[in-house]
Design a protein around this nucleic acid. Structure first.
Lengths: 355, 355
DNA sequence: CCAGGGATTGTAAACGTTTACAAATTGCCT
DNA sequence: AGGCAATTTGTAAACGTTTACAATCCCTGG
C-alpha cells in the first residue's frame, strides 16, 4: 500500500511493468541496442551484451509481447478449429498440434464448431483483424468451416485442413489426413470377410465431411461385394454417445436387423454398444460393432472395440508443420495432400454372425 | 502479381489491410471520430455516424485487435490451466468456461499441466508480458501450478482457482469448487453403508490437490467407521486409464483383497473396472467400484459407474465470472471460496460384498 | 444579436517495440 | 600516424489505436 514505487513504466492491475526504455537507461545504452540484444544478440558487442543482460536481470524485464505482435504484425498464434476438444480422438490430434506448435514458437487458440459460437461476421472479423497467423481447420462442419473458408477469400490467411478431405474445387488448401474412404472400405470389408451380410452404419450429420467419406467407403465396399443396402441401414445422428444410442435404437427396430454395425466414430460405437446391451443382446454374439479412431476408451470397453486406428498425433504435428511453413513463406493456397496410413486393429467387438 | 495496389495500409501475408486512417479519409473525418464511432457511437452525431458507417462498409474495415490490445493494455484473453483438455470431466468444465468467457468477450488460451510444456521461466515471462488478462487455475499439480503462483508474486495478475482447494496460507485467491473432502467422505460412507469393510482407494499423484482432498475424505470416513486401512490399500498412480489399471493390479495382489475400491476419478474407475474384469472377476459381484466426476462415459460403462457428480459446467462458468470481475475491478488477491453442491449418483458398479 | 454552454469534432501525444539510416567507434594496414 | 572498412551504436520514424485537451459548432435564453 505504501507508495514507495518510483520507477518508470506503466501500471497495470496494480503493478509496474518495466519497458525497454528502463532497461536501456540502466544499461546506459539506447533502446535500439536492447532490442537488438533480444532479437539478434550477435549484433551487439560482448561488453554491451553483459551490461544489457545485467540490466535485464535487475529490472526483471521481459518484452511486452503485445507491443511486439503489434509492431511485427504477427501474433505467433494459430487458430485450431475442431468439433470439440473433449473428443478423445481430437484430443490426441491436439497433443500433436501442441507439441509441434510449441516447437515452432506458436500458441494455440481453439474454436469449437459444435458449440457454434461465432457468427459469420465474427469469423470474418477475426480473420481480418490479424488475431492469428493461420488456421488449422479440423472440421469443416457446416456452416462454420465453409464460412471460414469464404470469409477468408477477402484476406488470404494460411489455412491447412486436417483429418478430412475438402473437395479441391471448393478451395485449394493443403491437407493432412488418412484416406477416410479407403479406411471405410477396409472396415466394411472386414465385417464382410467375417461373414456379415446385413451391415448397418451409424454415421454423423450429413454435413460432416469426415463421416461422409467413411460412409462412402462403406457404400463402395458393399457395392463391390454386391450387397444391397438401400434400406434404412444407414442412420445419421449426432456425433455423440446419445446420438449413437438413438441411432442404434432405430437400427434395432429394423425389420431385418443388421448383424453388424459400422460406427463412424469410436464414441458412437461406445454408445451403440451400450444400447445393444441394454436391449438384452450381446456383442459380438448377436451384433458385431466396428468403431473408428481407436481412442483411448476403445481398448477398455466391454468388449474391447475393433476399430480403425488413425495416427492422430502425427496428423496434428504434420498439419502444424505445414501451416507454419505457409505462414513463414507468406504464401497460402498451396494444395498438397499428405496422406498418412491407418490401421485396422482387431479386438473383441467383431465376430462371425450367429445366424 | 500485377502491382496494381496503391492504397495505403500495411501488407500482411500478401494482402492489404485498411487502417482507421483510410476510413477517416474516406468519411472525411478525423481518426479520433472513427475511433469514437467504434467505441462509443453515442458520442458521434447522427450525420457523421452515417458517413463513417458507409466508409467502414466500403473499405471493409475492421479494427486491428493487435493495436487495440497494445494500446489498451488488455488482451481480452484468459489463460486456463488444466491437466488435460481431453479429460472428459475437464472438458465439461471447459464448456462452462467457454460459455461464460464468450459472454464476457474473452478468448481462452489453454495450458495443459500434464504435458508439462512450459519451464518456470516461460511461465514467468508469460505472466509478466501481459499476454493474458487473468488466469484460471484448474490444477495446481506440481510443479506447474505452484510455479505460476510464485511467478505471479512479481506481477499480480488476477487468478482464480477452480475445482480444487488451495490452502489459504499458500496463496489467497478466490476459488470455485465442490467440497472434495465431503464428497470423498460421502463416497466412502456409501461403500461402508453397503456393507464393505475392506475398501481400497486408487488416487492420483501425491501432488494433485484434487485427489488429495478426496483421499482425505476417504480416510476420515474410514476412521469415523473405525475401519483400519493403514495397509497397502491406498495406491497412488497416474490420473489415466493405464495408471489405474496398474494400481488395480497391485490391489488385486493384496493378501487381503479389498471388496470395494474408490477411484479418485471416473477415468481411473474405468481403467480399474477393466482390470478387474480382465482378472476374471466381476463388478460389482466380486469387487465394487466407485468413481468420481460423472463424466459422460461413466453412464455407458459395463456396469454403469456409481459415482459422484460435480456441476462441472457451472464450476467453469462461475470461475470465469469471478475472474472477469477481478480483472475488471483491477484487484486480485480476493479470497472467497464458492462451494457448489455435488451429488452421489447410484448406478451399477457398487453392491453389497459377496463375502 | 450576443453570451454562454453543451454537444461534437479535431489535434496530437502516447503505448513499447522494431528497424532503416546515420553516426560513432574500433581495428587494421600501410 | 592516417585512412578505410567493418563493426557497433544511436536517432528517429513508424506500426494503428485511444484519449486528454483544445477547438469548433450549434443552440438557447436573455
Amino acid at each position: 500500500m505504501a507508495p514507495k514505487q518510483k520507477q518508470q513504466g506503466t501500471v497495470f492491475a496494480g503493478m509496474n511493468t518495466v519497458s525497454i526504455k528502463e532497461v536501456a537507461r540502466l544499461a546506459g545504452v539506447s533502446i535500439a541496442t536492447v532490442s537488438r540484444y533480444i532479437n539478434a544478440p550477435e549484433k551487439v558487442s560482448e561488453k554491451t551484451r553483459a551490461k544489457v543482460q545485467a540490466a535485464i536481470k535487475t529490472t526483471n524485464y521481459s518484452p511486452n509481447t503485445l507491443a511486439q505482435s503489434f509492431r511485427r504484425g504477427r501474433t505467433n498464434m494459430i487458430m485450431v478449429v475442431l468439433p470439440s476438444v473433449g473428443d478423445p480422438f481430437f484430443e490426441q490430434v491436439l497433443t500433436g498440434i501442441r507439441t509441434a506448435a510449441q516447437a515452432k514458437g506458436y500458441s494455440i487458440v481453439i474454436e469449437e464448431t459444435q458449440r457454434n459460437t461465432m457468427t459469420a461476421d465474427q469469423i470474418g472479423a477475426m480473420l481480418v483483424s490479424k488475431q492469428t497467423d493461420g488456421i488449422l481447420l479440423l472440421a469443416s462442419l457446416s456452416p462454420f468451416g465453409t464460412e471460414i473458408l469464404s470469409a477468408n477469400s477477402q484476406r488470404r490467411l494460411p489455412i491447412v485442413i486436417g483429418c478430412e478431405t475438402v473437395s479441391p474445387d471448393l478451395a485449394k488448401f493443403s491437407g493432412v489426413h488418412i484416406d477416410n474412404i479407403a479406411a471405410g472400405i477396409e472396415a466394411t470389408e472386414f465385417l464382410i470377410s467375417n461373414g456379415h451380410r446385413r451391415i448397418g452404419m451409424i454415421t454423423g450429420q450429413v454435413a460432416s465431411l469426415l463421416t461422409q467419406d467413411r460412409e462412402l467407403g462403406y457404400r463402395k465396399a458393399l457395392k463391390k461385394a454386391a450387397i444391397d443396402c438401400s434400406d434404412g441401414w444407414v442412420v445419421n445422428g449426432e456425433l455423440s454417445i446419445a446420438g449413437a444410442r438413438h441411432a442404434m435404437r432405430a437400427l434395432l427396430k429394423h425389420p431385418e436387423r443388421p448383424s453388424a454395425v459400422f460406427c463412424a466414430t469410436d464414441e458412437m460405437a461406445i454408445g451403440a454398444l451400450h444400447e445393444v446391451k441394454q436391449a438384452g443382446l450381446s456383442v459380438p454374439g448377436d451384433i458385431s460393432i466396428m468403431g473408428f479412431d481407436d481412442m483411448r476408451f476403445a481398448a477398455v470397453s466391454d468388449p474391447p472395440l475393433t476399430t480403425i486406428a488413425q495416427p492422430a498425433e502425427i496428423i496434428g504435428e504434420r498439419a502444424i508443420e505445414r501451416l507454419c511453413q505457409e505462414i513463414e513463406a507468406g504464401k497460402s493456397a498451396v494444395c498438397e495432400q499428405e496422406i498418412l496410413p491407418h490401421r485396422l486393429v482387431m479386438r473383441g467387438s467383431v465376430a462371425a454372425p450367429s445366424s
